[in-house]
Simulated assay, not measured.
Amino acid sequence: MKSSLIVTAAAINGCSAFNAFTQLKKILSIPTYDGPPPSRVNTESWLDVLEYDQPPTFDVLAKTIDFATRKSYEERNAFLADDYVFRGPIIGPITFSDVKNTQQGFNIVGAYPNLETRPFGFTVDPDNPYRCYWFERWEGTNTNSVKIGQIELPPTNEDVKLPTHIMSVHWTPEAKIKYSCLSSPLDRWEGTTKGAGAVFGLLVGAGMGSTSASVGDMALRFQQRLVHAIGGFGRNWSLEEDIPAWWKSKARGADPNDL
């Protein structure tokens, strides 16, 4: 219909379709904007504590690549601030030591001795020079057993490829990581784990059935609190007394956002 209007107007006025469209915009009072692009919306957030007035005195991109390519807990631990917090879509807030204990409790690293996180596509946040994003696509072979409480899953000896997810880290002016975040899988059709990502994807690759794991799921929230109360399976979030004071959200695990 728009094309017909433009052609008709051009024939009547004896001008080009472009000029006709310009005249139609004036008649219909369609505003035009020739100035600079509008600035981003400035909204206050409790996470503004992760932004700083002074620019970084170190190369955030290079520092992040160095961190992301380290493989041992000990090496990565050296990059973390004392008040570090990790958060995933349905896990956290959690300290680094609890992340380590959770994964060791399932023997995830031992079950995939050749596990590679394959980081790529590093980029600094244009709105926060202290934040850096990158992609990861985990791959490995399940050659050892996985333990879930008293249950032991024998190795499948299958090559496992997880869907791609995004990681991000927030650095402090002292070049320490204060907060890191892991996203949900970007494409649930990618890989061999039926859309499950990160540790859940590795568990599916080791033979555990694929289950729904989404924010706000009541059954999942109940299960997480039960596991949290029983203990012995690793933690879905850290003990309240261990969570740094700067982390204001009271949402735990798969709880919906509260702030």
Rank of each mutant, 00 (worst) to 15 (best):
K2A: 15
I6W: 04
I6Q: 09
A11S: 13
A11L: 13
I12C: 01
G14M: 07
C15D: 02
S16L: 03
F18N: 09
Q23F: 02
K26I: 02
P38Y: 01
R40D: 07
R40K: 09
N42K: 15
W46K: 10
D48G: 05
V49K: 02
F58G: 06
I65R: 14
F67A: 02
F67Q: 09
A68W: 05
T69Q: 15
S72H: 11
N77C: 14
A78W: 04
Y84R: 07
Y84C: 12
F86N: 14
P89A: 14
I90S: 08
S97R: 13
N101P: 01
N107R: 14
N107Q: 12
F122E: 08
P126D: 12
D127P: 00
N128I: 04
P129R: 02
R131S: 06
Y133T: 00
W134D: 07
F135V: 02
R137D: 02
W138R: 03
W138G: 00
G140T: 00
T141M: 08
N142C: 13
V146F: 03
I148M: 04
E158M: 00
V169F: 01
A175K: 03
S183K: 08
R188G: 01
A196F: 02
G197A: 12
A198C: 11
F200S: 15
G201V: 03
V204S: 04
A206Q: 00
G207L: 06
S212Y: 11
S214E: 15
S214A: 11
G216K: 12
M218D: 10
F222N: 15
F222H: 09
F222W: 12
L226K: 15
G232Y: 12
G232R: 14
F233C: 11
S238D: 08
S238I: 07
E240L: 14
E241C: 12
R252S: 07
D255K: 11
P256R: 12
L259F: 10
